[in-house]
């Protein structure tokens, strides 16, 4: 079932000042429960798009419907924000309270939810991100990955249907990166719709579909296998492909016969065994 639809979604910054087109007439549809990755170079429009999912920005032209609500209708603002949570790049900018459980409760308190219900939600949100043991800690004592999971718990406690991650791992160490991607996948498996913006192609490769952006446009929408099958195109855009894709491509160029659309290390190794025999 469709949960988000964009129709000619357009965003122009500084309209009065000549204007810079950040989103150039996007059309797409996202189903409930999908895991979507958005990739593209700096300045391609990814973060502008992210801010349209929960009406932090409104279209300067066209429309976006989130859980059926037109974001440009002011009366819908509440419904849109109830349904979409955001997780940004720097966890230090997202944490507001001095104790973990208070921070997780913050969003719920703003929604005016009963204290007993908030307590229940905080419990289950902390459990979902594997941070129950830290509920009484000061966030300042946590690692980057742990802080980011607290930010996710805060969103979960609000029971949104959609979570938008805008480069959530850019500042994290390798283990922190793994933790966040694992958490996003786990939540997706429980039915949440995930939109995940990243510069790390290995992270994008776990998505159901990838939106490939350039210059405010969506150039391509497809499965990771489809998107990464054209390694040359991806590189022309200034992006990268996963290691297995790159190596398979290099061997093909040297005349070796490998199956099309190799994406994972395992698939590459299977192909390697075939070659060796």
């Amino acid at each position: 079932m469709e949960i988000i639809r964009a129709e000619n979604l357009t965003h122009v910054y500084n309209l009065v000042d000549g204007g810079k087109i950040a989103l150039d007439g996007l059309n797409f549809s996202i189903d409930e429960g999908e895991f979507i990755s958005v990739i593209g170079t700096n300045g391609s429009g990814k973060s502008t798009l992210a801010k349209h999912f929960n009406a932090l920005l409104l279209p300067t032209n066209g429309k976006i419907f989130v859980t059926g609500f037109d974001t440009s209708d002011e009366n819908n603002l509440w419904h849109v924000r109830e349904n979409v949570g955001m997780v940004f790049q720097n966890p230090d900018n997202e944490i507001v309270a001095a104790v973990v459980e208070d921070d997780v409760a913050f969003g719920c308190e703003n929604l005016g939810i009963e204290p007993e219900e908030i307590a229940r939600r905080v419990d289950s949100a902390l459990a979902a991100v594997n941070m129950t043991a830290y509920r009484k800690f000061s966030p300042s004592k946590l690692s980057g990955g742990q802080k980011q999971r607290i930010a996710i718990a805060g969103v979960l406690a609000m029971r949104t249907k959609i979570i938008v991650f805008d480069e959530p791992t850019a500042m994290l160490d390798p283990v922190g990166r793994r933790e966040i991607l694992d958490t996003a996948q786990k939540l997706n498996a429980q039915g949440l719709t995930i939109i995940y913006i990243t510069h790390f192609m290995e992270e994008a490769a776990v998505a159901d579909r990838i939106f490939l952006m350039e210059n405010g446009k969506i150039l391509k929408i497809g499965t990771p296998r489809e998107i990464f099958s054209d390694a040359a195109e991806i590189k022309r855009l200034g992006l990268d492909v996963p290691v297995a894709v790159e190596l398979a491509e290099r061997l093909r160029r040297r005349g070796f016969k490998l199956p099309k659309n190799i994406l994972t290390d395992e698939e590459f190794i299977t192909a390697l065994k075939e070659l060796k025999n």
């Binding site: 170079t41 700096n42 500042m171 200034g238 990268d240």
Partner: peptide, 11 residues
């Protein structure tokens, strides 16, 4: 961390 947050080409 001179490359944090940059796209692959800029990195």
């Amino acid at each position: 961390e001179p490359t944090a947050g940059l796209d692959p080409r800029a990195r």
